[in-house]
Computed example of a mutant assay.
Amino acid sequence: MSERSERSERSERRGGFDPAGPVTGLFFLVLAGAFLADGLSGGHAVETAVMVPVVFIGLGVVGTVRVLTRSRRRRLR
């Protein structure tokens, strides 16, 4: 492979941004913060009736973002 084609291949890989990782990380950090606040407080920081649907909706959003950006992750490799 020539040096020029290696450089152009490398520059194509660098240009993309995959939002799936940051979205997933942010979701789990917020979730961990909610559980930590619940554990450290005397009562319930977030009611179970609210927390369970929020967790399922958040997992759905994370899964949707990962599915929608799957082709982008393949191109970044």
Score class of each variant (00 low, 15 high):
G16I: 05
H44L: 11
R13Y: 12
G15I: 05
F27S: 04
G25D: 12
V46W: 05
S71A: 12
V62Y: 02
G16C: 00
G58A: 04
G33C: 07
L68D: 04
T69F: 04
V65A: 03
G60A: 15
V54T: 14
V52L: 14
H44Y: 10
G42L: 07
T69H: 00
T69L: 00
P19F: 03
R14Y: 14
F35P: 00
V67D: 03
P53I: 10
P53R: 06
T48Y: 10
L40V: 14
P22H: 08
P22S: 06
F35V: 12
E47G: 06
G33N: 09
G33W: 12
E47S: 14
D38R: 08
F56Q: 04
V46K: 02
F35N: 08
G21F: 11
G39H: 11
G33S: 14
L59P: 01
T64K: 02
T64G: 04
T24N: 09
G21C: 03
V67W: 15
A37K: 07
T48C: 00
L40M: 14
V65K: 01
V54F: 14
D38A: 08
G21I: 06
V55G: 02
P53F: 06
R13C: 13
G39D: 09
M51Q: 09
V61H: 04
F27Q: 01
